[in-house]
Amino acid sequence: MKVAVWDTYVTKKDGSIMHFDILAPNEISDLETIYDFGKKYLKSKNEEDSTLTSKECNFCHIEKATEEIVTSIEQKGYFIIEMEGC
């Protein structure tokens, strides 16, 4: 499975930056769907009030998904790679 990687930087409640990648099936082109995945993740981190738009989240590249990523996408539609401040 090929996935699109969306590079995301969000300002947290405390003013620090949270950097994570949203991985979703390459076929998903609707930006609102991608942002919704990110908002679900932010809610799980108690950061649901953080802004997530094209300013914070941009397409980065396409890559081949690992088994772990495929499993997550099959279960919830997306996968998150936590980078910094998560």
Rank of each mutant, 00 (worst) to 15 (best):
M1V: 10
M1G: 07
M1Q: 04
K2E: 15
V3S: 07
V3D: 11
V3H: 12
A4Q: 01
A4D: 12
V5T: 05
W6A: 05
W6Y: 15
W6P: 08
D7V: 14
D7N: 11
T8L: 12
T8M: 11
T8C: 09
T8Y: 10
Y9F: 01
Y9C: 12
V10T: 00
V10L: 06
T11C: 13
T11P: 05
K13Q: 10
K13E: 14
D14Y: 09
D14M: 13
D14G: 03
G15E: 07
G15T: 02
I17G: 02
I17H: 00
M18I: 09
M18P: 07
H19T: 09
F20K: 00
F20P: 09
F20M: 06
F20Y: 10
D21W: 13
D21N: 11
D21T: 04
D21P: 05
D21R: 04
D21H: 14
D21M: 09
I22A: 02
I22C: 10
L23E: 05
A24N: 02
A24T: 10
A24K: 01
P25H: 06
P25C: 14
N26D: 13
E27Q: 12
I28P: 02
S29I: 14
S29W: 08
D30T: 01
L31V: 13
L31C: 03
L31N: 05
L31S: 04
E32W: 13
T33Q: 15
T33P: 08
I34S: 01
I34L: 10
Y35R: 04
Y35T: 04
D36L: 06
D36E: 15
F37P: 02
G38F: 12
G38S: 07
K39T: 11
K40I: 15
K40C: 14
K40A: 12
Y41I: 08
Y41P: 08
Y41H: 11
Y41M: 06
S44Q: 03
K45I: 05
K45G: 10
N46T: 05
N46M: 06
E47D: 09
E47G: 09
D49N: 09
S50M: 06
S50G: 15
T51W: 10
T51Q: 14
T51Y: 06
T51C: 12
T51K: 01
L52W: 07
E56M: 08
E56P: 04
C57W: 06
F59W: 11
C60V: 08
C60R: 00
C60M: 07
H61V: 00
I62V: 13
I62C: 01
I62F: 12
K64R: 05
K64L: 05
A65P: 15
A65W: 02
T66R: 06
E67L: 01
E68L: 12
E68S: 06
E68R: 04
E68P: 11
E68F: 13
I69R: 02
I69F: 08
I69E: 13
V70T: 09
T71Q: 07
T71K: 09
T71N: 15
S72D: 14
S72Y: 08
E74P: 11
E74W: 10
E74G: 09
E74Q: 14
Q75P: 02
Q75Y: 10
K76W: 05
G77W: 13
Y78I: 02
Y78G: 00
Y78Q: 06
I80Q: 01
I80S: 00
I80R: 03
E82M: 10
E82H: 12
M83E: 09
M83K: 14
E84P: 02
E84Y: 15
E84K: 05
C86Q: 11
C86F: 15
